[in-house]
Write a protein that binds this DNA or RNA. Sequence first.
DNA 1: CGATACCTTGAACTAATTCAATTAAGGTGG
DNA 2: CCACCTTAATTGAATTAGTTCAAGGTATCG
Lengths: 163, 163
Amino acid sequence: MALQFASDFLGRPYAGDNTSALAEAATDVELCTFTRPQLEVLLRAYPGLQQQLMQRVLKDLDFAREWMVLLGRKTAEERVASFILLCLEKQRNVACHAAPSKSGERLELPLSRTDIADYLGITLETVARKLRQLSDDGVIAIHTGRFVSVLDAERLRARSASD
Amino acid sequence: MALQFASDFLGRPYAGDNTSALAEAATDVELCTFTRPQLEVLLRAYPGLQQQLMQRVLKDLDFAREWMVLLGRKTAEERVASFILLCLEKQRNVACHAAPSKSGERLELPLSRTDIADYLGITLETVARKLRQLSDDGVIAIHTGRFVSVLDAERLRARSASD
DNA sequence: CGATACCTTGAACTAATTCAATTAAGGTGG
DNA sequence: CCACCTTAATTGAATTAGTTCAAGGTATCG
């Protein structure tokens, strides 16, 4: 339902015990955890923190709604292209702030084909086929493992949008 | 991207001026509006309010992710059934708390076929066809305008889930 | 080197779309 | 209150994007 990247926050502050969040690691991860009371103490002590958390959650909400557009309207190719661009953007964030992402850079898709398909609302076979097609067209290159290279980011972006 | 019902909140507190939210009324609406500074004053004055707002936003987020499952995995019939159930639930909330929603009760779908289709990620023709099918099967009845009746809520629920 | 999990590719099939033609509903002015 | 007009909804037939099912292929790890 949601894909979390490095530095993302996962949890339900102020929620009663009726809330359950389930997460599954797709790669090795390093977690920084707080108990709910701990976090609530921090939120009370630092008012700015509460606002920042709110902004984070609102950003997640905006992202989820954007993703709904993908799931409701985009074609399989647009979905796959969007996913690659998402990974590219996220990788750039952790690697080095404001690195301009030179063309052909090695990029890891941090999910199996099955998980990508799930996340994009299509089948794993379709993911494989559309990746192949993008590769045939010279927009990306597919390496071994879960690695790809974006050869033509501009063209990839063009093929990720539905309008 | 989101369908708001009576008592729902729309807005981005703490957001800079770069945020824009666009809303379109599908029916007549009555709005209660605050300027962002006004709201922020209230949030500071009443700490409980901030938590309540957070809970609302988190609930929106959960709902959005639930909807993503609908958009990513459900068939057209399941989507239409889910939408009717959503309207039923929302209508019950405003009408009379804890009214048990007797069978055959008149229910308004507050959107045009086009808007329903958009919201469900299918075409308006498919919406019409699936409504027809549910009607033929005696699960719902279609009235004039945007009104329907749920004749068999249990069966409708069964046809709204994908697993 | 063999085994297991993952990925790719092909061919047949199907759910939903698209395009086109009716039909029904709502609103307006006479 | 009724014809008229405009917009919305339904229905049908043909098409298609994506799925499903099945068979190979490739990587990785003990």
